[in-house]
Design a protein around this nucleic acid. Structure first.
Length: 731
DNA sequence: GCGTATCGCGTTTTT
DNA sequence: CGCGATACGC
């Protein structure tokens, strides 16, 4: 197996400070052999611990390219490797870091043929999956039952949930969706059609990537051994968010060596709805019997008043695995709770507080507003806009999820996978006088043929839309005849699409045009179309509407997408009955997951924490209804927070739009880049004093050619270090 | 009668 | 923004 088929990530950065682990924790975390389970509370340094282990393994001569670091977002793995770079030298960039899905994709492109999949599959995202379900719903005659039939989103969650949990869909419906049991047969039928549809057209969704990775490991001894040997050490972050399949993958991939380290916190499990199962953490010691368990209970993030309140939130959980978190961070600012008259007033409260915080010296980018659902922030977004405060919204629509973006991508996807029915359908629907029926008829005919492009050219068009079909054909002739550079292809597509685009979105196409520009810029960075297509499905770029102004921005985010981040000040808005927990969360596991969600939100804060809720909400029939505060807030011990009274801050004058004074100051600064000089063995004879970023000061005891040396450190004893990986400085 | 164009309304959370 | 109900055109 070649070593270079999985890319690492680059980084560069100077020193980092590691908070202390005690002797036995240290021992476990740095052990070169055997499984390790780290159970860690919020803000206790999970990521730091992982980085620490990477650093240590490399110091002991483990080759960086045989370390596999699995995280949930690509951002997280980049962040982690960046931190590792602070500890070590640039060889760290050869550590393989990625998401489960990303690694699965690379492995399947390489070995997928062993499963009967060619290497020409297209990865589809959630919206694609919903589109397919919709097509099938109408072709199976289920569209009419809409009223009680589950929404397509719920449907996808049920279908993929049943795959993830290895439960039969029938049982899942009986147990958790009893109210849908009348539709069990229909749902099962739909699931089967959905699976077949994907297989027939070379489409793979997120779950398929995992399922097929697991199959690859199970069914081919050869591949399993190759992967297990290739990665001698495997690490997983946010282990409580893994599903059963991912746990199996980890088990199988490590089967020759058991060198697995996972970190997680059962109190932060918020992804059960997509199959995550925090019992994976509890199971870990059974799956890996000789594993070492490390509990990290010191919180390095929040002040005591905030920690007391967050501990109180989780105290009320019916099921918990107690960790008593403590902090040494001082502070006396209690969390605050504010009941606003309505949503508008809630928004202006938040803005007032933000301005106040900024006069106290809190940076704008250190302030975050969190909420349960994407649309809860609409009112606030308006208010922030009028006040001229820059913000970035996370967890909303991704760039590639908007219609015009999908349109363009559809052309490109067809060049890579001609069987991609979804894209055919999408493109044909753009033609004037062609609707769902006609589009599907054409799609069915051409996707079944050997050369769909030929078939399209030969397709007898109807009188009214013959012209459009011909123009489409010329486009494909052009596309297939051109050089294969993605950016060149983009230009050709736009030549055809621009007029279609302008008439399709006549009212607001200038706004959307900017997105297309952004896509163009992204594509310019790719040489290979396939890679580009994969990346957009696996890791869709965020929608930066106010493209890089370079200035500071505050963060608006759903709680789910705020995971793993931390801020000086956090506002949790919409803490009202019916909003949080979500109205459809019944008692039981769902209710508990909502509670953990609030816990995640509150534990993002370092110094300032605010909860607010509107006392009045608009109901579906445009009536206003009075609501109380969220039951989760109501059950918190009253002394742990302060109430802000509605009248209290009204005397504050409105601040003018605030322009950050620090922006100009920092924008001109070049990125600090440190060039590390590699030490040679000659510079390090026995007796030399050296410094190591973690172990501290030590003395060289012995040198072993070519590039190993034993160093005795005051606090850590004798360590064997490898000169290529350890970041040593001469003293 | 089939299929396409249009208008209005309610949104869970996502790798 | 996407879905469902309704209205028009072939």
């Amino acid at each position: 197996m070649k070593n270079d088929f999985l890319p690492g990530h680059g980084f560069d950065a100077p020193g980092v400070d590691l908070n202390g682990l005690n002797e036995s924790q240290y021992e476990a975390v740095t052990a070169i052999d055997g499984p390790v389970l780290v159970i860690a509370g919020a803000g206790s340094g999970k990521t730091r611990t992982l980085v620490h282990r990477v650093a240590h393994l490399m110091d002991q001569g483990v080759a960086p390219e045989s370390i596999l670091l699995l995280t949930f977002t690509r951002k997280a793995s980049q962040e982690m490797l960046w931190r590792a770079g602070q500890l070590l030298n640039e060889s760290c960039s050869r550590v393989v870091g990625g998401t489960f899905h990303g690694i699965a994709n690379l492995l399947l492109r390489r070995y997928g043929s062993q499963l009967g999949y060619g290497s020409t599959f297209t990865i589809i995202d959630r919206a694609d999956a919903e589109g397919i379900i919709n097509l099938l719903k109408s072709s199976l005659g289920l569209a009419g039952k809409s009223k009680q039939f589950p929404s397509k989103r719920a449907l996808i969650n049920m279908i993929s949930g049943s795959v993830n949990k290895s439960i039969e869909l029938e049982d899942l419906v009986d147990e958790q969706f009893a109210h849908l049991s009348d539709f069990t047969d229909d749902i099962v039928k739909l699931r089967d059609h959905y699976q077949n549809f994907k297989y027939d057209h070379g489409l793979m969704d997120y779950d398929d990537l995992l399922v097929n990775w697991k199959r690859l490991l199970e069914e081919s001894v050869e591949v399993r051994e190759a992967i297990s040997r290739r990665f001698s050490h495997i690490m997983v972050d946010e282990y409580q968010d893994t599903n059963l399949i991912q746990a199996d993958i980890v088990r199988l991939a490590a089967y020759t060596h058991d060198n697995v380290m996972v970190v997680g916190d059962d109190s932060q499990s918020i992804y059960a709805f997509r199959g995550a199962d925090f019992y994976n953490i509890m199971r870990f010691p059974k799956v890996f019997p000789n594993c070492r368990i490390v509990k990290l209970e010191e919180n390095y993030r929040s002040s005591q008043p905030i920690l007391s309140l967050t501990n109180d939130i989780i105290r009320n959980a019916t099921e918990k695995y107690t960790k008593t978190l403590f902090t040494r961070i001082e502070g006396d600012i209690k969390p605050r709770v504010y009941g606003a008259r309505d949503e508008r007033e809630e928004a202006s409260f938040v803005v007032r507080q933000i301005n106040k915080l900024r006069t106290e010296g809190v940076e704008l980018e250190e302030i975050a507003v969190l909420f349960r659902s994407g649309f809860h922030s609409y009112k606030l977004e308006l208010e922030l806009n009028t006040m001229g405060i820059d913000f970035e919204k996370r967890g909303g629509l991704k760039l590639t999820e908007s219609a015009h973006m999908k349109d363009v991508l559809a052309f490109l996807r067809l060049l890579v996978n001609t069987q991609d029915n979804l894209s055919w359908n999408r493109i044909l629907l753009q033609l004037d006088k062609v609707g769902p029926k006609t589009a599907q008829k054409i799609t069915n005919t051409i996707a079944a043929s050997d050369d769909p492009f030929e078939a399209l050219a030969a397709y007898p068009g109807g009188k009214t839309w013959k012209g459009g079909l011909e123009r489409l054909n010329t486009l494909f002739v052009d596309l297939r005849g051109s050089e294969q550079k993605p950016s060149a292809l983009f230009e050709i597509v736009m030549g055809y699409y621009q007029p279609v685009f302008e008439s399709l979105y006549a009212d607001d196409y200038p706004k959307r045009q900017k997105d297309l520009e952004q896509l163009k810029a992204i594509m310019a960075g790719y040489d290979d179309l396939q890679t580009f297509i994969d990346d957009t499905a696996l890791d869709p770029p965020e929608n930066d509407t106010q493209a890089d102004t370079g200035g500071e921005k505050m963060i608006l985010s759903t709680i789910h997408s705020s995971k793993g981040l931390e801020f000086d000040a956090v506002f949790v808005i919409g803490m009202a009955e019916g909003r949080f927990p979500h109205a459809s969360a019944g008692m039981g596991e769902q209710w508990e997951e909502e509670r953990r969600l609030l816990y995640v939100a509150a534990t993002r804060a370092r110094k300032h924490l605010y909860f607010s809720y509107p006392r009045e909400l608009m109901t579906p029939d445009r009536q206003f209804r009075r609501v109380g505060m969220s039951p989760f807030l109501a059950e918190i011990t009253p002394g742990l927070y302060e109430r802000v009274e509605p009248g209290a801050s009204t005397f504050m004058r409105r601040e003018p739009p605030y322009k950050s004074p620090s922006t100009a100051e920092f924008s001109g600064l070049p990125k600090a880049k440190k060039k590390e000089k590699k030490l040679s063995m000659d510079e390090l004879p026995a007796g030399t004093k050296v410094q190591h970023p973690f172990f501290g000061i030590g003395v060289v005891k012995k040198t072993t050619p070519p590039r190993s040396l034993d160093v005795k450190f005051d606090r850590h004893g004798v360590k064997t270090l490898h000169l290529d990986y350890a970041k040593l400085t001469l003293l």
